[in-house]
Structures are given as structure tokens and as C-alpha cells.
Design a protein around this nucleic acid. Structure first.
Length: 761
RNA sequence: UGGGGGAUCGGGUAGCGGUAGCCCGCGAGACUCUGGAUCUCGUUGCGGAGGUUCGAAUCCUCCUCCCCCAGCCA
């Protein structure tokens, strides 16, 4: 897995010894089928466990009896296995219902949870809004005994749905809405597909998820961005329950959020995918147009292709949209090396080869693999007087650059002969029905004597070809983001997302294994539909088309015409930059700082932040305030704001004095300061301990610079040639060699000097 | 509007004070019995404005834009 923000967290955790080994989990709710978005999470969680030698569990987050179904459990397990992953343990949140109940009891006893008897709507109203704080429920003050009794009776089934809920007692005024006493348990008189009728109260995600993680010893709990606010509950629960009810004091799991996958021209919402299934817009969850793993599987996409796709898109925290072309490219790259090439014709056009003897058959030898795929194998390809070629491969009036057949033109039949189109037959409506061609018998395996032909075309022998249905899939929607805008996503469905054609395929495929994936040359990758093939003849699904640069150039020339009349976009106006206005006393301070020679930017910050000002004033007691200001603002600002007292003002002053005296460089001082903040040490003391002194003597630096230039002649040349960025390279190298002690200005001077010296000799 | 996140080539992603890299796409060329594949070369980018620094995508300040949160869903 390429490095990402999660691997860096893990690296640090492992290095710091916070965990012996990592444990992740893939936590689907069994209320729908897995889609390609889940594949990202699966590859992440399982991939991390694999990379770090840890464990990854499959845990069903089955806390909502009303939407979950064992059918989904089965499909999820199948999909994860199909993708190529093995879970360490198969777990169910529903198996923890007893423990979870105990946790709830503990919270109540600790006065941290209460039974609320407000209605659904009332709870919502009492919660306030993002700008107004919530109000306490009248039931918030119930005694522990009362809560215990009520909660127990909730469990026993004494109340109807919605009569009471268990809520965490956190903070109704919290700016984080999630913390305004989140509901932990609700009454649902429904039978659970696993727990049966044992319970009529069920925990909510926010309660069950962190605790399930903790029970299982998860170290890194990965979820998507929309749960960022929920992390506060996660932490609250674990901090309040660690070391209790059998939970270890430490380590505990932590939640990290990454951006979910968005793919162009499709949908990733389970709810909306369900809608498509139920509405009959697609045939089922495994319709090959669906972005579900079962749909992709049925379409013929391999697990390796999906894993490669996920690898290519990476993991980050920014919501983004991935071009559908990336998936297609991953699929093609996979199939290119594994799919034998055969010939099929989707929309047949009859060709009679008039100079080929009637009734004669030829058996041609045709390799399965192109010259650039290092694989062996071939099949016999029957050739005869009547063949079919693709309708698209003939044009009565060929556009410029057309490499295929046209009246009087020649084309190569793949693995066979070169033919010339002599005559075009049409029906009454003027549609082309048949081509009369002649072949050159001396072109098998060699070019015609009068030069090579430009185009090669696929074909099948009419008497030998096998009929087949070809299902041509295209993107499900016509717009990149069908969920955007006023109209329903249903309106953006692509009416041509499935096109079925009856065509022909060469007979050799009859001998192949049913799960063989082919490249039908010049058309795309196909395989037999695992459900419908064989019922009434052959049925092939197109997995993905081949890249088609010809079609692209055609489409572009069309588009150019359309776009030339497009109006220019209006110029975007610049919005004014506004600095926050300073109050009267801030302004006074600002002016005072400025008059002391402090730059405007720093003065502004200092004027607005009394904490920084106080620190600066203290540091500047015996020193020049001007030299200290930027250190306080730019280097120590964050630490001072956070109230860290690691480095005192006078210590800062001492350090800066060392810089002023020329004993150390800015760079050294910054490094030391950082370390001092982290370790709570005296920076000037650190300088002394480590014997840090800047190297500014040209005599010391010269040999280093000279060697660097000799060792990197190409870079030296590029720098001479004007690639000024390379100066950074040389300075950086010199810094590395001197442990950061070199004086960069001296180094730069020397580099320039040596560059000239060496050039001149 | 309170809070929480985010912004790097056309799209995706790395980079953690020292040469802005990789993948997809795109463009040109080579090769080719697939207008595929392969190979070579090229292409454009650090949201904006200031500041610190010898040196900033990276540190500091301000601004802009985008996403998430007011389910007894997950």
C-alpha cells in the first residue's frame, strides 16, 4: 500500500509502542449489497493488516433489526472472499448485546446516562440547532435508581416503541450536535435475524460501534468522513468505560476518517441502489451495470482489477471524484495479459469472396496472443468463401483517415488474407446488404506484393460461426453526478446502458471453459454471462471496451463543431480581501509594536493576541523586542496559544541571542526550539550539550561543496544552465553532511564560486 | 450562522523547511496483421494575499471556496 495519512499514524503508534500489533475491521451493516466504494474500505482495512502483519476482522454492525437480513450477510461474505481477503474473525455486533447492555448499566450507575421519555419529535426540538444550544429534557435529572429501573423495564418489554430511550448525559450546549446527549438505546419490538426475540431494545451505532471495537481489541478504527463528528462520542464512551466491565484500561482503539469513493457516472448510495433494484431499472443487485461487487463480478471484472483500481486511487481526507476511466484502465490492464484473443462480429455484414472457390474451407492457424503478450497457444480458425465483417468496418463514403474497407479499397482480414471491395449490394431502402470482394491468395502471413494495407479487420466464417447474444454495457447514468441537482437521479439514467445485439463468434470458443475471459479483437473484453449463458444459446457480457482512439478523434471533430458557437464564460470578479478590523486598543498596540520596528504582519498578530504579547514583553525585558517578535509569532505562536509552558520567555531570549552572536544559525535555532518544546528542555542548554555551532568558515565548507559538485556533475551543469531549483539540492546535501550546521549563505556563495571555478578549468 | 473537516497538473494521489514526484488522461513520435498493447518524448499544478527563512506546497496570519453535523439510520 502506498503511504497515506493512516499508515503514518500506524507507523508512529507502532514506533511509540502504543500497540504491539495492529487490528482493523471491516464493519458492514447487512442491509444491502457491497459496492465498489466498500471495496476501498475492504482493501484499506485488510491491506493494512496484511502490510503490517496484523489482523483484520469482518464485523457485521447489525444493530438495526428492521433493515437487516441474513441474505446480505451471505452476499457480503461472498464478496469479501471474492475480492481476495480472509478475515481473522467473523464477528457480529449482535453477539455483544449482553455486554453492551452491561456497559449501558455502568454508564447509568456512573450518572452518565439517563432514560428520557420525550417523544422522537420532542427530543429533536430540545436538541436546539447549530446556532442555538439545546435544552435539558425534563427527565434529565432522574436518579440513578429511577434510570436503572426504567431501563430494566425497557429491556423487559414493558413499553411500546418510542416510549423511552437511553441517552448519554454529555453536553446539551455542545457546538458539536453529536454531543448533545446522543441516544444510546431505543425500543424496537422487532425480531432480530440473529438475536431472535431476546431483545426489544437495540443499541445505536454511536454506542455499539466504539464498544465493539474496544471489545475486539481493534487498534485503528477506520471509517468515512461523515463520521468525523461522531468521533467525539467514540472518545467519550471509551474514556468513560475503559477499565470497566471487562474493558482493558489500555490500549484502546482510535477512530480515523478517510474520504469515501465517488465514481463518475454512477451511484454509491446503498439506498438509491436498492431503489434501482426495486424499481426495476436494473435487473437485480448483480446487474452488470451496477457498481456493486456482485454486479462487477457478473460483468466479468476480476478481483485483481478492482484491487489495482483501489490501489491507484489512493486514500486521503479530501472528498474527491474519481474518473470512471481509472476503473476501466485498471480492468483493461489486468485483462490485457490474461484474456486470449478471438474473433467475434457484433453487427454482421455479409462478405462474399468471389474468387475463393465455392465449398472450400481453409483452416488457418491463429495465435491466441499478440506479439507483445508473452504467452503460447493458438487455435484453428476456419475460413471460407462467405464471411461476416463488422458493419462499422465498411463505409461507402469513408471519412478522412478511415483505415477500413470502402468501395475499391483493401483491408486485411485478421490472421487471414487481404481482400478488395469490388461491389456493394443494397436493398430497396439503400442499406448495404452485402459486399462482393476478391482476395489475394498470396497474402497469408505476408504483405501483398504492391505494399502493405493500412487496416486490419475482424471477421468470422459464415458457415462456421456460432450465434451469440452480446450484451454491451455502458455507464448507468448520463451525468457525472446523478445525485446532484433538483431532479431525481432516476431521470439521469442512461437509456443505452444496456444494448443487446445478436452476432456471431468463431467456433473455437465452444471448447473453452465457461469462465474464460476473452478479448474479442478490436471490440473489447467479454465473458459468458454466468447466469443467462447457455439457457438459450451463448450470451456474452462486454466487460469493458478497448481503448478506441479512432472513435475519439471522430467524436472530437464533431464536438469541435458544436463548441465553436459556445459563448465565452463571464469573467469572475475578484472579491475583496478583508482583514479583521482591530479594536481601538488593539490598534494602539499595533501601532506601538510597529513603532518598535516590528513588521506589520507580526504586529497585527501580537495586537490581537494578548497571550503572545505578554510572552514577547517578558522575553524582551533585556533584549531587543524587534528580533524576538517573529520568533514569538511564527515559531512559538501555536505552543503559547495552547498554553504550553515548555520554553520560557527568557530561554527564548537566550536562544535568539546565540543566533545574533553568530554562534548558531537560524536553522539550528529552529531545530533546537522544536526539540525543546517537545521535551520541555532549555533550548540554549541543548545547544551547549550538543555542541552546536554553525559552520560558516569557508575553509570548512569548501571541501564539502567541491566534492558535491564533482559527485553530481549533471546537477551542477543543470544549475549552471539556469535550473536554480538545484541550488536547494546542493544546500540540502551540505546540510545533511554537516548535521544542519552549515551556514547556508556561505554554502550558496561557495557553490556559485566553485561552479565557475570548475567550469573555467 | 456554531462546530468539525478539506483544498497540490484536466482527474486521483505523494511530498512533513532543501530538484514538486507517481498513476489515469491528454499531445507528438516509434512500432504493429487489433485505430489494442508496448516504447520514447512532451504537457499543464501547490486556492488567494501577506509574513518568517539563505531557501516555503511544507511554518505563521488573514481571506476565499467546498464537504459534514440538528435520525430513536449506519
Amino acid at each position: 500500500m502506498s503511504p497515506n495519512f493512516i499508515t503514518s499514524v500506524i507507523d508512529e503508534d507502532l514506533k511509540a509502542g502504543r500497540y504491539q500489533t495492529i487490528v482493523t475491521r471491516f464493519p458492514p451493516e447487512p442491509n444491502g449489497y457491497l459496492h465498489i466504494g466498500h471495496a476501498k474500505s475492504i482493501c484499506l482495512n485488510f491491506g493494512l493488516a496484511l502490510d503490517y502483519g496484523g489482523a483484520c476482522n469482518l464485523r457485521f454492525d447489525d444493530t438495526n433489526p428492521e433493515t437487516e437480513d441474513p441474505e446480505y450477510v451471505l452476499s457480503i461474505k461472498k464478496d469479501v472472499e471474492w475480492l481476495g481477503f480472509k478475515w481473522d474473525r467473523e464477528l457480529y455486533a449482535s453477539d455483544y448485546f449482553d455486554q453492551l447492555y452491561e456497559f449501558a448499566l455502568q454508564l447509568i450507575k456512573d450518572g452518565k446516562a439517563y432514560v428520557d421519555s420525550l417523544s422522537d419529535e420532542e427530543i429533536g426540538a430540545y436538541r436546539g440547532t447549530i446556532t442555538e444550544p439545546g435544552r435539558p429534557s425534563p427527565y434529565r435529572g432522574r436518579t440513578v435508581e429511577e434510570n436503572l429501573d426504567l431501563f430494566e423495564r425497557m429491556r423487559k418489554g414493558e413499553f411500546p416503541n418510542g416510549a423511552h430511550v437511553l441517552r448519554a448525559k454529555i453536553d446539551l450546549a455542545s457546538p458539536n450536535m453529536k454531543l448533545r446527549d446522543p441516544v444510546l438505546y431505543r425500543i424496537v419490538h422487532a425480531s432480530h435475524y440473529r438475536a431472535g426475540n431476546k431483545w426489544c431494545i437495540y443499541p445505536l451505532y454511536d454506542f455499539a460501534h466504539p464498544l465493539s471495537d474496544a471489545i475486539e481489541g481493534v487498534s485503528h478504527s477506520l471509517c468515512t468522513l461523515e463520521f468525523e463528528n461522531n468521533r467525539a462520542i467514540y472518545d467519550w464512551l471509551l474514556e468513560n468505560l475503559r477499565g470497566k466491565c471487562g474493558l482493558p484500561e489500555s490500549p484502546r482503539p482510535y477512530q480515523y476518517e478517510f474520504a469515501r469513493l465517488n465514481l463518475d457516472y454512477t451511484l454509491m448510495s446503498k439506498r438509491k441502489l436498492l431503489q434501482l433494484v426495486q424499481g426495476g431499472q436494473v435487473n437485480n443487485w448483480d446487474d452488470p451495470r451496477m457498481p456493486t461487487l456482485s454486479g462487477l463480478r457478473r460483468r466479468g471484472v476480476t478481483p485483481a482489477a478492482i484491487r489495482e483500481f483501489i490501489k491507484r486511487i489512493g486514500v486521503a481526507k479530501a472528498n474527491s471524484w474519481v474518473d470512471a476511466g481509472v476503473l476501466e484502465a485498471a480492468i483493461r490492464d489486468d485483462l490485457n495479459f490474461t484474456a486470449p484473443r478471438v474473433l467475434a462480429v457484433l453487427r454482421p455484414l455479409k462478405v462474399v469472396i468471389t474468387n475463393f472457390p465455392q465449398g472450400r474451407d481453409e483452416d488457418l492457424e491463429a495465435p491466441y496472443w499478440p506479439h507483445d503478450v508473452p504467452r503460447e497457444g493458438s487455435r484453428r480458425l476456419p475460413f471460407s468463401r462467405e464471411i461476416f465483417i463488422e458493419q462499422d468496418d465498411f463505409a461507402e463514403n469513408p471519412p478522412k483517415g478511415f483505415h477500413r474497407l470502402f468501395p475499391g479499397g483493401r483491408v486485411r482480414l485478421r490472421h487471414a488474407y487481404v481482400i478488395r471491395c469490388d461491389e456493394v449490394l443494397k436493398d430497396a431502402s439503400g442499406a448495404v446488404t452485402e459486399l462482393r470482394c476478391s482476395y489475394d491468395p498470396d497474402t497469408l502471413g505476408k504483405n501483398p506484393s504492391d505494399g502493405a494495407v493500412k487496416g486490419t479487420v475482424h471477421w468470422v466464417s459464415a458457415p462456421h460461426a456460432v450465434k451469440a447474444e452480446f450484451r454491451l454495457y455502458d455507464r448507468l447514468f448520463t451525468v457525472p453526478n446523478p445525485e446532484e441537482g433538483e431532479s431525481s437521479f432516476i431521470e439521469h439514467l442512461n437509456p443505452e446502458s444496456l444494448v443487446c445485439v445478436q452476432g456471431l463468434v468463431e467456433p473455437s470458443v465452444l471448447a473453452d471453459a465457461p469462465d474464460t475471459r476473452y478479448q474479442f479483437e478490436r471490440l473489447g473484453y467479454f465473458w459468458r454471462d454466468p447466469v443467462d449463458c447457455g439457457k438459450e444459446g451463448l450470451v456474452f457480457n462486454r466487460i469493458v471496451t478497448l481503448k478506441d482512439s479512432w472513435a475519439k478523434t471522430e467524436a472530437e471533430s464533431q464536438q469541435r463543431k458544436a463548441e465553436s458557437s459556445k459563448p465565452a464564460l463571464p469573467a469572475t470578479g475578484h472579491k475583496p480581501q478583508t482583514e479583521p478590523v482591530l479594536s481601538a486598543e488593539q490598534l494602539a498596540r499595533f501601532n506601538r509594536f510597529k513603532s518598535q520596528g516590528i513588521g506589520e504582519a507580526e504586529a497585527r498578530v501580537l495586537a490581537r493576541e494578548p497571550k503572545l504579547e505578554a510572552y514577547l514583553l517578558e522575553a524582551a525585558k533585556n533584549d531587543d523586542i524587534r528580533g524576538l517578535a517573529s520568533w514569538v509569532v511564527n515559531e512559538l505562536g501555536s505552543a503559547i496559544r495552547a498554553g504550553e509552558k515548555a520554553v520560557s520567555p527568557s530561554q527564548l531570549a537566550q536562544l535568539v541571542a546565540l543566533v545574533k552572536e553568530g554562534i548558531i544559525t537560524n536553522r539550528i535555532a529552529k531545530g533546537v526550539l522544536e526539540e525543546a518544546i517537545q521535551r520541555g528542555a532549555d533550548p540554549a542548554e541543548l545547544v551547549k550539550q550538543k555542541g552546536l555551532r554553525q559552520l560558516s568558515d569557508a575553509a570548512d565548507l569548501e571541501p564539502i561543496v567541491e566534492r558535491l559538485i564533482r559527485q553530481n556533475p549533471d546537477k551542477a551543469n543543470a544549475l549552471r544552465g539556469g535550473r536554480t531549483g538545484l541550488m536547494g539540492f546542493f544546500v540540502g546535501q551540505a546540510m545533511r553532511e554537516t548535521g544542519g550546521r552549515a551556514n547556508a549563505e556561505v554554502v550558496q556563495r561557495l557553490v556559485n564560486q566553485k561552479l565557475n571555478d570548475i567550469e573555467s578549468c
